[in-house]
């Protein structure tokens, strides 16, 4: 997968680049709209991560022209502009997603994967998880023929961990993904623990869940 990151804040750009490379993306950088246009002319990208507040041109201009030239490319807007109008405008102009800074890199990756799934057109994508099968699209977990009844939040926790398998996710990262801006504002809460506990209880009734690990003092991980 090839991604172009257009971001004028270089320190941030390097961090995102490092993260994406680790996640096996080929990543190009542009620090202004001009460079962005040049890169877009040369290469066909799967993803364009676009900052709206660029020094030379407004990101929307790039979005409009880029989307016209590369309708297959997924454009994700990453911006500090969080107002609803910009979000609506961006999505109306063909952006595939809109992330407000500061965002979690894990969230970015999850969004990119969601777009990939959507674009690939595969409706059922069953992922093996121990002796369970997980259907991300249909939001279902099954053991053999038995569908396991999970709450929305429980499934969100499970799928986010699965998406970032072999990675320790902190309670904070999990709760931010699940509750977004309504994430706990008292950070010593153990709400995520409650959800994990319930999740384990429901799954253990069918088979072992040794793949779901608790990392002391940090968070949780699915090892696969």
């Amino acid at each position: 997968m090839k991604a172009l990151l257009i971001e004028d804040e270089k320190t941030l750009a390097y961090e995102i680049e490092a993260f994406l490379k680790k996640a096996f993306y080929i990543c190009d950088l542009a620090h202004n709209a001009r460079q962005g246009f040049e890169k877009l002319e040369d290469t066909q990208y799967d993803f364009v991560l676009l900052d709206l507040g660029l020094p030379d041109r407004d990101g929307f201009v790039l979005l409009e022209k880029g989307k016209k030239a590369h309708p297959e490319t997924a454009f994700i807007i990453i911006t500090a502009r969080g107002n609803v109008d910009d979000r609506v405008r961006g999505l109306n102009m063909g952006a595939d997603d809109y992330l407000t800074k500061p965002f979690s890199l894990l969230e970015l990756e999850a969004r990119m994967q969601a777009i990939s799934r959507r674009k690939s057109g595969i409706n059922t994508q069953l992922i093996d998880l121990g002796e369970f099968k997980v259907d991300i699209q249909k939001r279902m977990v099954s053991y053999g023929d038995v569908d396991i009844d999970l709450t929305r939040k429980e499934f969100d926790v499970l799928s986010y961990l699965l998406l970032h398998k072999n990675r320790v996710l902190t309670r904070l990262q999990l709760s931010e993904h699940i509750w977004g801006s309504f994430a706990d504002d008292d950070f010593d809460s153990n709400y995520i623990d409650v959800h994990i506990k319930n999740l384990r209880k429901k799954l253990v009734a069918h088979a072992g869940v040794e793949w779901l690990e608790t990392v002391r003092g940090v968070g949780y991980r699915i090892r696969k």
Binding site: E9, E15, Q173
Partner: peptide, 24 residues
């Protein structure tokens, strides 16, 4: 923007397998 940079840096550091549990 600086918060964004800090968050990305910390997240990348956490990804680093060489980081000990204590540092994590």
């Amino acid at each position: 923007t600086p918060i964004s940079i800090l968050q990305s840096k910390i997240e990348n550091l956490m990804e680093n397998t060489e980081v000990t549990d204590h540092v994590h």
